[in-house]
C-alpha cells in the first residue's frame, strides 16, 4: 500500500500458465475456453499477487524437472519396500524417531523438503524444532541412523538448496 509500484501485466507468470493449463484440462481445449482461461489467467494474478509474500523462485527449470523425476522414482521404489515390510511379520519391524539437522530456512523450500521426506514411504516428517534447525522424522524400519540422515540430506536437501539457491 505504501509504495506505489509500476503496473505489471504478469506478476506471477508461472502461476498464470498453470491456471490457464488447468482450465484447459478441465474444459477439453475448446476455443472459447482458451480465451476465457486466458482472461482468468491474467486477471486473477492482478488481484491475488499483492496478497502473497515474496517467495524464492527456482532459477533453473531443468533441475526442477530432474528433481521431480528422481522423486517419482524414489516414491515407486520405496513403495515396494514398504509393501514388503507390511506383508512381513510385525516382529521384524524397528520403528524409530530420528532428528535430521537442516539448513533450509525459507518457507517454500522447507515445505517442499518436508513434503518430499513424507512422500517417500518409510519416512514421515513429524515436526520442526522452533529454531528450524532440526526436523523430526519417524521411520518405519531403521537400519542405520547415520546412513539414513546422510541419505536424506544428500538426496533431497542438497538439490533443493541448489534449485532455490538459498
Amino acid at each position: 500500500m505504501s509504495k506505489k509500484s509500476k503496473f505489471v501485466w504478469f506478476p506471477t507468470p508461472y502461476h498464470s500458465l498453470l491456471l490457464w493449463l488447468v482450465w484447459q484440462i478441465l474444459h477439453e481445449f475448446s476455443r472459447g475456453h482458451m480465451v476465457l482461461g486466458a482472461v482468468f489467467a491474467i486477471v486473477i494474478p492482478w488481484i491475488v499477487a499483492p496478497l502473497s509474500e515474496k517467495e524464492p523462485v527456482a532459477k533453473n527449470p531443468l533441475k526442477v524437472l530432474l528433481y521431480l523425476l528422481r522423486l517419482v522414482q524414489d516414491i515407486i521404489v520405496s513403495n515396494f519396500e514398504v509393501a514388503k515390510r507390511v506383508l512381513q511379520s510385525n516382529r521384524h519391524l524397528k520403528p524409530a524417531f530420528i532428528a535430521v539437522p537442516i539448513t533450509i530456512s525459507e518457507p517454500l523450500p522447507l515445505t517442499i523438503f518436508t513434503s518430499s521426506v513424507s512422500l517417500t514411504p518409510g519416512t514421515c516428517s513429524v515436526e520442526l524444532s522452533d529454531d528450524k534447525q532440526w526436523l523430526y522424522v519417524h521411520v518405519l524400519h531403521l537400519e542405520d541412523e547415520q546412513k539414513l540422515i546422510a541419505q536424506i540430506k544428500q538426496r533431497y536437501e542438497a538439490p533443493i538448496k541448489e534449485i532455490f539457491q538459498c
Binding site: 513403495n79 507390511v86 506383508l87 510385525n90 514411504p121 514421515c124
Partner: peptide, 24 residues
C-alpha cells in the same frame, strides 16, 4: 496393501506410513 498395513501395523505412527503413501 496400504489398507492391510492400516489394519495390522502395531502403533499409530507406523500405521500412518502405509495408507497415506501406498494409497496415493
Amino acid at each position: 496393501i496400504g489398507s492391510i498395513g492400516l489394519a495390522k501395523l502395531p502403533d499409530y505412527f507406523t500405521r500412518l506410513h502405509a495408507p497415506t503413501k501406498a494409497s496415493t
